[in-house]
Design a protein around this nucleic acid. Sequence first.
DNA 1: TAGATTGTTAATCGATTAACAATC
DNA 2: TAGATTGTTAATCGATTAACAATC
Lengths: 207, 207
Amino acid sequence: MAKNITSQTLQRLPLYFSYLVSLPESRKSGNISATAIAEALGLNDVQVRKDLASVSRGGRPRTGYITAELINDIGRFLGFENHDGVVVAGVGNFGRAMLGSDSFADYGFDIVCGFDCNEKLAGTVINGKPVRHISEMRSFCISENIKTGIITVPENSAQEVCDIMTESGIKYILNFASVHLNVPKNVVVHNENISITLAMLARRDFF
Amino acid sequence: MAKNITSQTLQRLPLYFSYLVSLPESRKSGNISATAIAEALGLNDVQVRKDLASVSRGGRPRTGYITAELINDIGRFLGFENHDGVVVAGVGNFGRAMLGSDSFADYGFDIVCGFDCNEKLAGTVINGKPVRHISEMRSFCISENIKTGIITVPENSAQEVCDIMTESGIKYILNFASVHLNVPKNVVVHNENISITLAMLARRDFF
DNA sequence: TAGATTGTTAATCGATTAACAATC
DNA sequence: TAGATTGTTAATCGATTAACAATC
C-alpha cells in the first residue's frame, strides 16, 4: 500500500470515501466489493481495485473489503485524521457558513478563528469559534503556526487580506473571492469559483 | 473550432478564461500568446494552443491571439452568455451568500429565487432576489422551466428538498449538504464538499 | 466444489509533448 | 529578412481496461 499514487487515483479516493461514508449503517458494518463500488460510481472495477490497492491493506477474494476498515484506510491516507488549524478571513455570509460548519473536523481541519474588519464582530463567537479583528490575524497565525487560510472577503479587499496571510506564514489559501491573487511562489492558491462549478454541471450535456 | 473537445480540455478552458479575465485592462486590450498563457499557468504551450484551437477563431503567428476576442470565444463556448434560471433551496448562510453574489451573471446564470421553510423569510428580498416558502418551489420551477437547483439546506432535509426538485423537472443539482442524495437516473448531482477541496489543497505536498 | 472476487501482467486507449512546416 | 508564433502530424507517455492466475 501507499505506493506510486497517480494524480488520477488521488482525485478518485475522496469519491470512494464519500460514497462509503454515505452508506447506511447496516452496510457499513459489513463487507463491500470493488465491483459494487465501481457499479455505484459508474467506474471500471479494475480501476477501483487498483486505486484501493494503493491505500488499503487489501481485500479478500469472494468477500471483498471490510467496509469500516476501508473507510479508515482511505481517510488516514488522505490525512482526514489530522488536526490542521485553519483561519477564515471575512465573516460575511460565506465566512459565517464556514465557521458554522461542523464537517471540517471529519476531514482533519479545525477552523480555529474568524477575522473581520468590522469592529462590531470582533469578540463575538460563532458556533463556538471566536471572531477577532483582522488586525490580529497576523500575530495569531504566527503564534498558532497556521498554514491554511480561507478568504471570504469582498473582491476589493481580497488581495490585501491575502498579503497579510502570506506574511503570516500561511502556505495554502482557499479563495472564494472571484479575483486573481498574487502570491509568493511557495504559496498555493485554490480559486473556488462556484459559477464555474455550476457551469460545468448544468451544461455537461451541451458540451 | 468547436471540434472534438476532450474532457481534459474542457477542464482547462475555465482556467484560461479566469486567467484572461483577471488580466489588467492594459493587457486585456492587446494580444496574448499561447506561450505566455502556458507560462503563467504552468502548462505546456502546445497543449494550450490545441485547447484554444478547439474554441477560438485562431491566433496569428508572431502576435498571438487578440485577448478580448479570446475571452469572448471561450466564454461563448462555455455558455457564459446564456441566461439560465437557477433556484436556491435553503436561505441560511450559504443560501444568502448565493443570493447575494452577483458573479453568477458573468457565467450565464440568473439566481431567480430562494426558497426556505422558515415562514418569516418568505416574502423577503435579498440582493434583489425574492425569497418564497419552500412549498411554492415546485410550481415555481415548473412554470419557470427551471433546470438547475442549488441545495443549501441542513443535512437532514436535503433529501426531501432534492425530491421536490426532481419532481419539478430540475435536472442539475449542486449540493452543499454533506449527504448522499438519491436521484432518478436522468438527474445529475454534483456534491460540493469544501472540506475535501481544502484537503486536496492543504495536503498536496504530503501526497 | 463452483463461483465470485482479488491483484497483477499485458494490451489498449487517450492525452501530452516533440518536431516541423507555414506564416506574419 | 530573421525570429516568434501558430497549427498539425508523429512520437511518447501515462492511464485505463482486458485477460488471467490465485484465493477463499
